[in-house]
Amino acid sequence: MRIEISGLTKTYRGGVAALDGLDLTVPTGMFGLLGANGAGKTTLMRILAGLVRPTSGRVTVGGHDMSTGAGRTAVQRGLGYLPQDLGVYPDLTARQFLDYLALLKGVDDRTTRRRRVGELLEVVALTGDADRRLRGFSGGMRQRVGIAQALLADPQLLIVDEPTAGLDPQERIRFRTLLSQFAGRRTVLLSTHIVDDIAQTCGEVAVLARGRLIFRGTVDELTHRARGRVWSVVTDGPPPAEGMVVSALPHEGGTRYRVVAPAAPDPRARPVEPAIEDGYLALTTR
């Protein structure tokens, strides 16, 4: 499902512009969306999921115009959506919750529903907890239920907003692998501010800042944006005043700082190979 966005603007009450003339094309496959908090990622996700209507601009998903009710419904029939703040019904068991959402997604046949729910519980490793009420689930387990519900109707478009927040490292890796396996010929839009999640799963990425697109390209191209701007400095004094400190590691004779800055932040600084996180910071901290 190809997504085409042109001139997309969303202004909330009070004049707050969450999106400001956004133009973006999202092809089939895994696509990452990066940006700081408040960059407009969640608003974009909600518009693509049909929850929020744009103030102006045009959005088509798989050829369906999202400004029409028919278009939104057509997209939602093939949509899997995992919101940033996943709310569940605590009185239902995981199996009941998925069964209910499958009904809302139009899976009316009981046998099909049971089979699909069973398969997905297996995929997210919750079979053993399937008949426990959700109120007793940890954050990570709830997130896995959220992932399962997003996959219920075998969606052609999967929108996941900050999906790995609150997951432990093993769960994060498991989730990323699951998304990559799922993508194939489908479109998976992964919104996050965890740069590593994008690096490990997405070929292409877009970066939003203050509602505008500031980068679109491959992960390598994003990384390349920091070439010649990443420095390593060892000092026993305060951190370099210039640039953005990416990391600080204890080191013999002081602390080793990794800094993103347009020029060497210290006479002792030496250039190092950039990573995707450096590329992202080089873009957003100009």
């Binding site: 939602q76 029939r77 709310g87 959402l101 139009g106």
Partner: peptide, 14 residues
């Protein structure tokens, strides 16, 4: 008071 309102709104059932 629906905790799963976002999931509800993204479903094809209005």
């Amino acid at each position: 008071r629906d905790p799963a309102v976002e999931l509800q709104l993204a479903a094809p059932t209005p």
